[in-house]
Design a protein around this nucleic acid. Structure first.
Length: 213
DNA sequence: CACGTGATCCACT
DNA sequence: GTGGATCACGTGC
């Protein structure tokens, strides 16, 4: 048998570690999305860690609700949420169970299946923008709440899975403040990216929305 | 390039 | 009723 060039599926124990270990370790890994139209492979270039019940920036900080329920479950599952009235974002739940931590997948490079992704990302001016930002990534891969709770460690035919890929040399891994996170969660430098990669999204500070009254 | 703002739903308070 | 782990587009330098 010929091993796939992108490697083998990451086992569940990969995700059953503290989120600050898992997040940087996801860089360079290959996210696989299988749809009726075919397979998309994406090399992760930017992620953010959310440390659950101890992290004011996390959806799980104020306790378990219907929306964040998946974060309180076992690691290696997808947490997909809907925000700003039109976008979805994709996270991977990390351990330990009950901590409700997760990694937001913020950006990546499309390795295969770009034709399928371009159809969903008509506003992208070039292929570097196809998954440059968390909502763009989810949109391009056709990820919505139907995939919330999906096991990403369940094998070759799953709608979502992660392969070992090729992690970058450690000196290219950078970290800094999380994008769009304000309040007490803002200071944490828990955004990780591959230095110099053109698919990494630009940093934006948190901007409180003006009232519409 | 930096900045400001409208779009458009839904979970939570 | 409020505001968000965002994006796209317009304006102005």
């Amino acid at each position: 048998m010929i091993e796939r060039p992108d490697g083998t599926p990451l086992p569940r124990h990969f995700f059953d570690r503290p989120v600050l270990e898992v997040a940087p370790d996801l860089l360079g890994r290959t996210l696989v999305r299988r749809t009726a139209e075919g397979t998309i492979e994406l090399r992760l270039t930017e992620v953010e860690a959310y440390a659950g019940d101890i992290d004011p920036g996390s959806h799980a900080f104020r306790g378990r609700t219907a929306r964040n329920d998946v974060m309180f479950g076992p690691p290696g599952h997808a947490y997909v949420y809907f925000t700003y009235g039109m976008w979805h974002c994709l996270n991977l739940v990390c351990g330990p169970v009950g901590r409700a931590s997760g990694v937001l997948l913020r950006a990546g490079e499309i390795l295969s299946g770009a034709e399928q992704v371009r159809k969903r990302r008509l506003s992208a001016r070039n292929d570097k923008e196809l998954a440059k930002g968390p909502a763009r990534l989810a949109t391009g891969l056709g990820v919505d709440r139907a995939l919330n709770g999906t096991d990403v460690c369940s094998g070759h035919d799953a709608p979502l899975s992660i392969l070992t890929g090729t992690p970058p040399p450690s000196d290219l891994v950078r970290n800094g403040p999380r994008t769009g996170v304000g309040g007490d969660g803002a200071p944490h430098p828990w955004r990780y990216w591959i230095d110099g990669d053109p698919t990494v999204s630009p940093y934006r500070a948190h901007t409180p929305r003006r009232r519409t009254t």
